[in-house]
Design a protein around this nucleic acid. Structure first.
Lengths: 237, 237
DNA sequence: CAGTGGTCTAGACCACAAT
DNA sequence: TTGTGGTCTAGACCACTGT
């Protein structure tokens, strides 16, 4: 790791996650870290601020820096990558994916607006089911513009779209906006996710962005209510 | 505003929100801002990094800084304070609150763990309904330790607990961890929120922290599925 | 008081992109 | 080559906390 503040961040993060620093423990002050890592205060500060943003520590003027939580220690949630720090990996497909349909359609107003393209521009219209341990847990409706993400095929869709985008196309996925809500399950939900009439779905509406600011994906995911939850750490500003 | 980077942050943020900078527009580079605000590059960088974290802009080496979204422009959601930047204000009570019960109980293991207190320590056990425009939208089960938040009364509960904590007690609320899921509505949900059997609730489990790292509230909120959604902006690290 | 973090400076060098 | 952002330094001064 050539970037110093990331190295310091990783160093402390790991010591928190593996329990060397317990919740409530004070971690070294900035000057101590400066001498230890041979760097200036600003560099330590940057590393520590990252830890604050991710909910690992809190800091108080005049007192010091203390462990707030070991974040990842709370893995009681069923489907969770690095959910707590925030990036939704639904489309990452760590399990298997089954394609329900894969078409080209004309962008509706909603899609065009979300993807920042013109009305009636062509878009991929993909409906997939994701499985984990042979259990279906989410139905994903995805729209992407071929002008942004070219060359999508059945094969790509059976694997991970995100891997294709990052590894094959060499693009960088940088952020996303999500809105989470609960909804009554519809006919398709119940059939695919094996739900009864009274069992709901957790709906995630998402627009995902490349590092050049282009929205490349607009998706609507309907999750089995018992197999998925969504966690965030929120800092008050 | 005496803090320069916050002043710069506010300046740009407002210009994005009121449309002076449109989505996709390039905003001034760091050196330009330095001369304009009479400060050093690091200060501008800090302001811009805040804007990146909140999803307003993205930046690319060699190219510049560009508007990603005007965030708050998407106020299509029913109940939303500054949800997009992340802090859940359910307990803020902008509407009215009705108390269903208010007791002192002995902490269960789950509560003790969440609030970092001992098993069987006394805790407030509060069940409230929040209304917005005379419509019930959430049932909130809240646990707080009197040792941390003393002096809770019926009157306090009818207003805003958060206001009481910050204004009357002079404590600072700094962060929270939430887990969001969908659930089948129970008898109470259906009665209070006027739901039918097939209509679900959006459940938010939350631990909230003071700025000294103390978890002061453990709550479980069951929201009307049609009146509440939860939005986040997530940066990939 | 000493110890801590918060803000800020005035530079430096590097990496990357467009021309 | 120029312009951009990313990282980093070696200080400085201030604000807050606890002794």
């Amino acid at each position: 790791m050539k970037i110093k503040y990331k190295a310091i961040y990783e160093n402390i993060r790991q010591q928190i996650e593996n329990g060397k620093y317990q919740v409530g423990d004070q971690i070294p002050d900035e000057n101590t870290m400066c001498t230890q890592f041979g760097c200036s205060r600003m560099t330590v500060k940057k590393a520590y601020d990252l830890l604050v943003n991710e909910g690992y520590i809190y800091r108080r003027q005049g007192q010091g820096s203390f462990v707030l939580s070991n974040s990842m220690g709370q893995r009681e949630l069923e489907i969770q990558g690095r959910e707590l720090t925030g990036f939704y990996r639904g489309t990452n497909g760590e399990g298997q994916a089954k394609i329900l349909h894969f078409n080209l359609i004309f962008a509706t107003e909603k899609i065009a607006k979300a993807l920042n393209i013109h009305l009636h521009d062509p878009v991929y219209d993909i409906l997939r089911v994701q499985y984990l341990d042979d259990k279906p847990y989410v139905i994903e409706q995805t729209y992407m513009a071929p002008s942004v993400i070219p060359g999508i095929t059945q094969e790509v869709l059976e694997g991970s779209i995100y891997n294709y985008i990052e590894n094959t196309l060499g693009l960088k996925i940088s952020s996303s906006k999500k809105t989470v809500s609960a909804a009554i399950s519809n006919e398709l939900d119940r059939q695919i996710l094996h739900l009864s009439e009274i069992e709901p779905v957790l709906v995630v509406d998402q627009v995902a962005y490349l590092d050049n600011g282009t929205p490349f994906e607009y998706s609507n995911s309907r999750h089995h209510y018992g197999l998925f939850s969504f966690s965030v750490y929120a800092l008050r500003r």
